[in-house]
Simulated scan of single mutants.
Amino acid sequence: MGGSGQAGSGAARLLREWHPDLPLAIAGRDLGRARRVAGELGDATAVTLDLERPGLGLPAENAYSAVVAAVRDSHLHGLRYAQERGLPYLSISSGLADIAPEVVAGAQRATAAPVLLASHYLVGLVVLAAMDLAREFGRLDAVRIAAVLDDQDAGGPAALDDLERLSAITSAGLVRRGGAFTWVTGAEAEVSVPSADGVALPGQRVATLDVPSLALATGANDVHFDLAVGATASRRRGGPPSAEVLIDLAGTAPSGAPLRTRHHLVHPDGQRPLTALGIALGVERLLGLTGEPAGPGLHTPEALLDPAVAVERMTAIGATITAA
């Protein structure tokens, strides 16, 4: 779903590269555009979708092995389509603020199929990178994430709609402070976000699934995620927009000595290749193309994916993780 968009088509290209014999169905509202993407991929078909109709308007005889919502499944017809057929389902567009319908639908039919809730920043890759960096700690006390999204790299129309919708739902940020999850608003949610070149941009402490995922996966009692939208360091140097995320970890080493690390996760081509990679990794794991297929129930990226493998794949597509 949304397979002819930036994120969906990018994920499809990665899956084709990794698994040349995997049949793909590129689904979208514009059949011509879907056909162009399918033609470039090879061993792919194009189908039209109606997201507002039960069954998505697809012919009853069509059969698939998974449903990937690379566009917002606002009526949850994509999720129902998957559950009724026992198919794995992945979504990336709900966000923390409006994820409740997906959670309830997944819980109501928990034994029907695996549901991967991946509406994290970069589809969970920041969480996985932080978890990989956390391996050198004996105890992790704080995880502080600061991301810069270039305003010339916010994605296609669907991604822009998601960003506007989630911004309108709440201006509050979700944090874990002293072990308790709490909301911050107003001046407390207004923050300064450092770019990779040290320039500080005005930003917001945001409500994202990364916060509970990082807190519960690492045990850190203090977690927040800050986001600024503006020019990234690469664009200030006259280059194209990049993706920038600062991962700041604090705690103790295995020896018990205090330890703090700060790393920049950067992709020179922006957020699009990383978003596509997050989707492709999730699909690969759901289908059991690497390892065992995911079991029924609700899942998040860090529950299914190996952080070290995710970092290896990030590096393979041009991302870097360097000490700040």
Rank of each mutant, 00 (worst) to 15 (best):
M1A: 10
G2S: 02
G8K: 03
G8H: 01
S9V: 02
S9F: 00
G10T: 06
G10M: 06
A11N: 03
W18Q: 00
P20Y: 12
A25K: 11
I26R: 03
G28T: 03
L31H: 02
R33Q: 11
A34S: 07
A38G: 01
E40L: 14
D43Q: 15
T45H: 14
T48V: 09
D50E: 15
L51M: 14
G57C: 04
P59R: 15
P59Y: 08
P59L: 07
S65Y: 13
V68K: 10
V68L: 14
V68T: 12
A70T: 06
V71F: 06
R72W: 03
L76C: 05
A82F: 01
S91H: 13
S91M: 14
S93N: 13
S93F: 08
L96P: 04
I99L: 14
A105Q: 06
R109G: 04
V115Q: 15
A118G: 07
H120Q: 13
H120V: 12
L122A: 14
V127G: 06
A130Y: 01
L133E: 09
A134R: 02
F137Q: 04
G138S: 05
R139S: 13
D141L: 13
D141P: 12
I145V: 08
I145Y: 02
I145C: 03
A146N: 10
A147M: 03
V148Y: 00
D151Q: 10
Q152Y: 11
G155N: 01
G156Y: 06
G156S: 10
A158H: 00
A159R: 05
I169N: 08
T170E: 15
S171H: 09
G173Q: 10
L174G: 02
V175G: 00
R176T: 00
G178Q: 01
G178F: 02
W183R: 12
A189W: 02
E190G: 08
A196Q: 11
P202Y: 09
P212H: 09
P212W: 08
P212Q: 08
L216H: 10
G219M: 09
D222Y: 14
D222E: 15
V223C: 05
F225T: 00
L227C: 14
L227H: 12
V229P: 03
A231C: 13
A233V: 06
I247A: 00
L249N: 08
A253Q: 13
T261N: 13
H264V: 02
V266L: 13
P268D: 11
R272V: 14
L286E: 03
L287D: 01
P293F: 06
G295L: 13
L305T: 01
A308S: 12
E312N: 10
E312D: 13
T315E: 09
T315G: 08
I317P: 08
T322P: 11
A323Y: 15
